[in-house]
């Protein structure tokens, strides 16, 4: 088969992947794998949301789980107490998280570096403590039980196979939003801020405003993820929305490469699936996870071209690909 052109080949690959992902629930996989799949989509959503702030705009945020939690609790409470429809709960959860994010960003985006980090960490803690102690509203450590599953078009989305589509839908929608945003002027402004604040300011970018906007959008999306989480788990309690969760999400963003959409998808997939794959090692599981985390950071960092064997291997692979292309195509493909 001719490797005609890179673009067409990639588009084909993409279509195949899309078909597989859409039909995943129909492939007869176990409930457990489908559950994991739903979580992967939710975490991709979370990683992408943090990517707005930390990846694209370069603002470190260590308290992101707080907005995840706000979204989850708002959505759960609205559906439990006021019996509102799932989509309304989700929208309001996103709004609540977004507004909270905006309020946090107003003071926080004036800070930078370590100060910003600790303030976001502090906000994360504050939200956690409030969730834990505002017993009248959130039932604190007792958690919220019996959260209703979404009912759309008369179908109850309770099983992982069906919930998969809800998670998939929202995740893809957000990813498209993200892609457009990066490509747009606003996105480029943010990347300018990340790369060199002073230069960006000199070019007329209102740094503060853009950072606040990015943070607010980021939190709103985390709120969506929270809502999805709550209506899937059917039980939430404050213990999920702590600092550890925030750092896990940040790890996904960093691992995937700041600002890279495909990167955070891959990283979310890897970091969600990893504990599962390591289950066989039970006692050593978290240790291996830690080692892998550090290893992944170092491997990304190390200038592998310093090591000749890796270099040679890469060159060899490149030469093979070039040879195939040259044989099959014309001058266009010869210049790889």
């Amino acid at each position: 088969m001719k490797i005609k052109s890179n673009r067409i080949f990639r588009k084909l690959l993409f279509c195949i992947m899309a078909c597989v992902l859409i039909s995943l629930p129909l492939l007869g996989l176990s409930n457990f794998v489908m559950r994991l799949a739903v979580f992967v989509w939710i975490y991709i959503l979370l990683a992408t949301s943090l990517n707005f702030t930390s990846g694209v705009a370069g603002q470190v945020s260590l308290g992101h789980a707080a907005f995840f939690g706000i979204g989850a609790y708002v959505s759960a409470l609205l559906s439990l107490k006021l019996e509102l429809h799932f989509l309304i709960c989700l929208a309001l959860a996103a709004a609540a998280a977004g507004v909270s994010g905006w309020l946090v960003a107003l003071p926080a985006m004036r800070l930078s570096g370590g100060y910003l980090a600790i303030v976001t960490l502090g906000f994360g803690q504050i939200v956690y403590i409030v969730l834990l102690n505002w017993i009248d509203l959130t039932r604190g450590p007792m958690g919220l039980v019996g959260i209703p599953s979404p009912v759309l078009f008369g179908i109850e989305f309770r099983k992982p196979q069906s919930y998969y589509y809800i998670a998939l839908f929202f995740c893809v929608a957000v990813l498209l939003l993200f892609k457009n945003y990066i490509g747009s002027r606003a996105g480029r402004n943010l990347m300018a801020i990340r790369d060199d604040e002073t230069a960006a300011a000199a070019m007329g970018v209102d740094i503060y405003k853009e950072k606040v906007k990015a943070f607010a959008i980021s939190s709103a999306i985390a709120g969506i993820a929270g809502s999805l989480y709550a209506h899937f788990m059917l039980f939430i309690d404050p213990s999920k929305f702590v600092g550890d969760e925030s750092t896990a999400i940040l790890s996904m963003v960093v691992l995937g490469g700041l600002g890279s959409m495909k990167g955070s998808i891959a990283a979310a997939l890897v970091l969600t699936a990893l504990p599962e794959l390591l289950r066989g090692f039970s006692r050593y599981r978290m240790l291996i996870y830690g080692i892998l985390l550090v290893a992944m950071m170092i491997t990304k960092a190390v200038d592998w071209s310093r090591y000749s064997w890796y270099d040679r291997m890469q060159q060899w692979i490149q030469r093979v690909v070039q040879a195939i292309n040259r044989k099959k195509g014309g001058w266009k493909n010869g210049a790889a």
Binding site: R35, F39, M233, F235, S239, K240
Partner: peptide, 8 residues
């Protein structure tokens, strides 16, 4: 001891 882990 994690809730999501327990449910999965």
């Amino acid at each position: 001891g994690d809730v999501a882990e327990a449910s999965n």
